[in-house]
Design a protein around this nucleic acid. Structure first.
Lengths: 108, 108
DNA sequence: AAACTATATGACTATATTGGAATATTATCA
DNA sequence: TGATAATATTCCAATATAGTCATATAGTTT
């Protein structure tokens, strides 16, 4: 097992392992957006959004296009839908499991 | 946008955003394994492997089964293959891009 | 050129995550 | 019961990451 390769993969995954960046990705799924538009949608600080866009870009997850004062960002990951679908399954499984625990406890 | 929901998702993603845990997941893709087997394959500290197994389990990504002194772990995520396939694409794109940059620079 | 607008960057503090060493727990076996 | 084996847990120092505030940059408009 090559630890270096796993670190590379980890860097990419870490880029999506953050609520702000997940929100950015989600709002880019609708299509290209400027930084201002993203800020308005996710209701966050300008500097924070900008910084997190930089992190996503540095990992090759989004790309940008400058036009005058604006910078337009787009998703570069085609497989993102499958991934989030998988994620939703995991989360609903988790909830189901917790709900079962709660039910079991309240029956005793 | 519901920040709490994004935090939940983030917790799951964070669970795979670590080299040791990625290695664990990869070696569980071959099938059920005991902790000792995992330790031997990924060549890591016992306490570290055990701890990271706990993190993966707490996020519903793996499950365990006790048998005598041993604990067997299995993957619970069916969609893991698609995800890693996607990840590999992103990484190879990144490398391609960096290679292009290097080529461009060395041609000047 | 000065004022303005959109975005990026830097410095900073708070918080989270990391892996290792030591120790605890639990089951098995003699 | 005492020794041993497999796994989990706790404590800790080092490092990484988060977001905020202030400032910088770069393009636009007047």
């Amino acid at each position: 097992m090559n630890r270096e390769f796993y670190k590379l993969k980890t860097a990419v995954i870490k880029a999506i392992a953050n609520p702000t960046r997940l929100m950015i990705i989600d709002c880019l799924r609708e299509g290209e957006k400027t930084v201002s538009e993203i800020i308005e949608i996710i209701e966050d600080e300008q500097s924070n959004v900008s910084k997190n866009l930089g992190i996503l870009k540095s990992q090759g997850l989004i790309k940008d296009r400058k036009a005058g004062l604006n910078v337009y960002y787009t998703l570069k990951i085609c497989c993102i839908n499958e991934f989030f679908c998988c994620l939703d399954n995991i989360i609903s499984e988790k909830f189901k499991h917790q709900q079962n625990l709660i039910n079991t406890l309240s029956n005793n």
